[in-house]
C-alpha cells in the first residue's frame, strides 16, 4: 500500500493544481442497511481522463449515480476553478451504460437531441438551424450519418457515440461515462476511447470513466482509481495496474507470481 495516494483534502484545500479540479470528499452511499460506498475521496483534474475500475458490485455505477445526484449520498462534490471560486453545481455530461430502451421505440437520434435542446415539442417543430447544429454535433463523434436512424436500430458502439455527442451539448465541465459491459465490438470500443481522448484535449474536460476493459484503461487513462466500496488505490495506470492491491482485488494471483519470477505483468 506504499504507493497509494489517498487524496488528502486538507492539503488540497489551499488551491488547485491545474486550471480547475473536482474534489469528491467523503462520499458514501448506504441503501437500506447495505453500505455500498464509504469514505470515497478523489481529486480529479481537468484535462485528465480518470478511469474507475473495480470488481463487479464494487459500487462504480453507484458512484456515478451519486455524483449525478440521483441517489442520496453523504459527503460533498466540489468543483473548483483556477481562481478558486467554488462552483456549487458543475455542468455535468453523462453517458449512461445503456438506455434500457424499448427497441421498438419510434425515437430517432434527431428526436433525442431536439428533446434535449429545443423548447418546442420534438415531434411538432423541427427548426432547420437546430437540425443543422445537431448534425454538427454528431459529426464531432463520427456519427453524422446516424441523424435520422431509430435509437433502437443502432449498434452498441453507434449508440455509445450518439450518447457521447449528447453529453457534450452543452460542453460540460465534468463528463461522466459509464462504459457498457457488453454489446460493443473491439473496433467500436477503440473508436470510442480515441474520441474521448481527443475530447479531453480539445475541451479540457474532467472525465470520469467507469471501465471494464483494463487494456483500454492502460492505453488511454491518465489516472486510474481502483474502487471496491472505497478507494483502494489511485495513481497512474502503471502504478495501479501493477500493484499488489490490484492483483488481489481481481484475484489475479497467478499474474502476481509470474511477475515475481520476472515475467511481464498483464
Amino acid at each position: 500500500m506504499t504507493e497509494t495516494r489517498f487524496h488528502n483534502h486538507d492539503a488540497c484545500r489551499q488551491g488547485c493544481c491545474g486550471l480547475c479540479c473536482t474534489k469528491i470528499e467523503d462520499f458514501g452511499v448506504t441503501i437500506g442497511s447495505t453500505v455500498i460506498l464509504k469514505n470515497v475521496n478523489l481529486h480529479i483534474h481537468c484535462g485528465e481522463l480518470t478511469a474507475i475500475i473495480g470488481p463487479n458490485g464494487a459500487g462504480k455505477s453507484t458512484l456515478i449515480k451519486a455524483l449525478l445526484g440521483e441517489i442520496p449520498h453523504t459527503g460533498t462534490l466540489k468543483f473548483v476553478q483556477y481562481d478558486n471560486g467554488l462552483l456549487k453545481a458543475p455542468v455535468m455530461g453523462y453517458v449512461p451504460q445503456s438506455l434500457n430502451l424499448d427497441t421498438t421505440s419510434p425515437t430517432s437520434v434527431l428526436d433525442l437531441f431536439l428533446a434535449c435542446r429545443s423548447k418546442y415539442p420534438a415531434w411538432l417543430i423541427r427548426r432547420k438551424r437546430e437540425v443543422y447544429k445537431v448534425k454538427e454535433q454528431l459529426d464531432r463523434v463520427n456519427a453524422g450519418h446516424l441523424l435520422s436512424r431509430r435509437l433502437g436500430a443502432l449498434s452498441g458502439g453507434e449508440l455509445q457515440r450518439v450518447l457521447l455527442a449528447l453529453a457534450l451539448d452543452p460542453v460540460p465541465e465534468i463528463l461522466l461515462l459509464d462504459e457498457p459491459v457488453s454489446g460493443i465490438d473491439q473496433n467500436g470500443l477503440e473508436l470510442f476511447y480515441e474520441t474521448v481522448s481527443e475530447l479531453r484535449n480539445a475541451y479540457d474536460l474532467s472525465i470520469i470513466l467507469v471501465s471494464h476493459d483494463l487494456d483500454m484503461v492502460r492505453r488511454y487513462a491518465d489516472r486510474v482509481v481502483l474502487l471496491n466500496k472505497t478507494v483502494l488505490m489511485a495513481g497512474t495506470p502503471e502504478e495501479v495496474l501493477n500493484s499488489d492491491v490490484f492483483f488481489d482485488t481481481f484475484s489475479l494471483r497467478w499474474q502476481k507470481e509470474k511477475r515475481g519470477k520476472g515475467g511481464t505483468a498483464l
Binding site: 449525478l68 438506455l99 434500457n100 428533446a115
Partner: peptide, 22 residues
C-alpha cells in the same frame, strides 16, 4: 401544458438518469 412539457417527458421516458443529468 403538453406543448411545454413534452420534450422533458420524452427524455425521462428514454432514460431517467440521462434526464436527471440534464
Amino acid at each position: 401544458f403538453w406543448f411545454f412539457v413534452f420534450n422533458r417527458l420524452l427524455l425521462v421516458s428514454i432514460n431517467p438518469s440521462l434526464a436527471g443529468s440534464r
